[in-house]
Amino acid sequence: MYKELCSALIMTVIIILFAIPMTDLSGESREVPQLLIIAMSVINAGQYIQAVIKIAGRLDVRVTLAGYPGLRVGILFGLTVVYLMALQTVGFYISSLIYFFVTSLLAQPMKITPVLAARRFVVCLLCIGFLYGLFTVSLKVQIPLSPLGI
């Protein structure tokens, strides 16, 4: 897929996503969004023209996932989503500690050994402990805590 053409399609999708609920608006509430949608549509048309010109001139680049480390990013991204979902139940500090420890071990290129894992756990614990001391103990910041109160 051509990059500039994809960009134009993304613009179209965004415009449609906003244009549909905009029809429910009335009067002054609608005025500015409507003007913006019109302006964005004009820019979108320009982007399509630019895409066609670039494709015709063989200046557009093809977007490809070849060579992209999809598996690694996918796993780490998935773990991030799990972390965000677990945040409220498990608490910020415990979930952050687990997330930090697990992802840093999975992402590294070195072989995981018990010594390395233990060392990494201590580093992660110190970092999260620092955040706990700074935010919860010193600044009394409200943050989701686990049932254990940490």
């Binding site: 991030t80 972390y83 409220q88 910020f92 952050s96 930090f100 970092c127 955040l131 910041v141």
Partner: peptide, 22 residues
């Protein structure tokens, strides 16, 4: 491999504590 998780944790903290909103 340490940086991205550390920054993510700070992002979560920063976003949450503006309005204490998940």
């Amino acid at each position: 491999y340490m940086m991205f998780a550390a920054v993510m944790i700070l992002c979560v903290f920063g976003s949450y504590c503006v309005q204490n909103s998940y």
